[in-house]
Structure formats: structure tokens, C-alpha cells
């Protein structure tokens, strides 16, 4: 029955190729299409997300260096859901506030706590940035192999069909091979954008994280100066 179908196939539209394919090959093709959908979903999501993050960083830096009082900035930001530099700033300020409200004595301990709080927030932020990039990498490396598997299985079936029909005419062989090759084509179609997107987004995520780290270091230095000034003034007051 298989060979009859093979021999009778004269039109080679994509749809007929797909419908002629065996069960395994169909499954592989569907899986690869799903992977492609997932890849492009991530691409769209990340593009929007990174754009938003970059804009937030720009805005925050502008506001931060505008000479506005840090207390005031903290008050406006602590009410909102913040991300990126804002989140780092809020976490550091929160720790600062808590320490001074409870009358912390050791300035070194305060500095360490603030740094820790900022590190944790930074880690969380960068994790959000790099989320799902792993699946892009997986799709990029595995999809060609999956497609190849589909091709091999398809060609196997088509050769079995040739053995059954006892004809090596190219017209008999060609549709089966074309259908099998379609699996590799879909695999490459999914893999190539995934690889490109992975490289681009991991580089972007690295840049954004570095920017946030730089801000965290800078803010840490500012807070350290403040702590020193506060200690100085409190000592002078004690004297």
C-alpha cells in the first residue's frame, strides 16, 4: 500500500509531502514547528523586554543623577513595582533605613549588609534577563539533529517502499526523499533563528547586567561616603 502511494504521488506540494510522511516523521515535523514557535515567542518577548529594561535604566540614571534627594527618590520608588537599577536602589535604601532606624553602631557591618542586599537583587534581576535563553540554546543545537532523525527515518521508510515496489525509478524514489528532507529543512528553520537569537540576547543580557553592576558599585560608594559622614557628625555631636 505504501509503494502504491509513493508511486502514485505526482504532485509535491508541501502539504502533500507532509501528509505522505510516516507517523514518526510527522511527529518530528510537528515538534520542530512547535520549537520554532517557541523560539520566535522568546525572540519577541526578549526583544520587547530588553527594550523596556534599557529604557528603564536610562530613565533611572537620568533621575538619579538629576540632583534629586535620595530620600525623596526612595519614597516615590518604594511604592511601585520596580525592576533593574530601581530595584537595586530600593533594596539598598531599605537596608540603609532599617539599620539607621534600629540605631546600628558598626559602620562596617552596615556597608556589608547593603552590598549583600544589592548583590542579591542584582542576581535576581540578571536571572530575569537571562530567563529562557537556555531553551533558545537547546533548540539551536538540538533541532538540526531532530530534523536529521526525521529524515533518516523517512528515507528508511521510503527505501523499504522501493524494495516493496521493486522499482528504482527516480519518480518512485523522489517523493519519499523529498518528504524526508522536509524534516531536516524544518529543523534548520527552527535552529538557525534560535542560534542567532541566543547569541544576540546573551550578549545584550551581559551588557545590561554589567550596567547594573556598575550602578550598584557606584551607589555602594555613595552610601559608604554617607555612612562615613554620618559617623563623623555623630562623633562630633558626642564630643
Amino acid at each position: 500500500m505504501e509503494q502504491v502511494g509513493l508511486a502514485a504521488t505526482s504532485d509535491v506540494t508541501l502539504w502533500s509531502l507532509f501528509m505522505e510522511a510516516g507517523f514518526v516523521v510527522k511527529l518530528v515535523m510537528l515538534g520542530l514547528i512547535a520549537a520554532s514557535v517557541w523560539t520566535w515567542g522568546i525572540v519577541v518577548d526578549k526583544t520587547l523586554n530588553y527594550g523596556r529594561v534599557r529604557r528603564q535604566l536610562d530613565n533611572f540614571e537620568q533621575v538619579f543623577w538629576s540632583g534629586q534627594s535620595l530620600e525623596e527618590l526612595y519614597r516615590t520608588l518604594s511604592d511601585r513595582q520596580t525592576a533593574g537599577m530601581g530595584a537595586i536602589f530600593v533594596s539598598a535604601m531599605r537596608e540603609w533605613k532599617k539599620s539607621f532606624e534600629r540605631g546600628a553602631r558598626s559602620p562596617i557591618g552596615l556597608q556589608m549588609r547593603i552590598d549583600r542586599a544589592m548583590d542579591v537583587t542584582l542576581a535576581r534581576e540578571s536571572e530575569t534577563l537571562e530567563a529562557r535563553l537556555g531553551s533558545l540554546a537547546t533548540i539551536g543545537s538540538a533541532a538540526p539533529f531532530i530534523g536529521l532523525f526525521g529524515t533518516v527515518v523517512g528515507i528508511m521508510t521510503s527505501f523499504q517502499a522501493i524494495a516493496g515496489s521493486k522499482s528504482t525509478n527516480l519518480a518512485v524514489v523522489a517523493p519519499g526523499i523529498a518528504e524526508a528532507l522536509l524534516a531536516t529543512a524544518i529543523g534548520l528553520l527552527a535552529a538557525i533563528p534560535a542560534v542567532i537569537a541566543y547569541n544576540k540576547f546573551s550578549a545584550d543580557a551581559g551588557k545590561l547586567t554589567a550596567r547594573m553592576e556598575a550602578f550598584a558599585d557606584e551607589f555602594s560608594a555613595i552610601l559608604s561616603r554617607q555612612i562615613d559622614e554620618k559617623l563623623q557628625s555623630s562623633r562630633q555631636a558626642a564630643q
Partner: peptide, 26 residues
């Protein structure tokens, strides 16, 4: 993410439809 996935799915549907029509039979 859901919106992105939906966008991606729609794009794929469009591309596949176009491929079925224009790449149909060489």
C-alpha cells in the same frame, strides 16, 4: 510571554500558509 507566544504562533501560521500557497509545487 503569552502575548509573545501568540504573536509567534500567528507569524508561523502566516508563513506556513504563504509557503503552502507559493512554494506549493515547484
Amino acid at each position: 510571554m503569552k502575548g509573545s507566544l501568540a504573536t509567534s504562533a500567528v507569524l508561523h501560521a502566516l508563513v506556513l500558509t504563504w509557503a503552502l500557497v507559493s512554494l506549493g509545487s515547484p
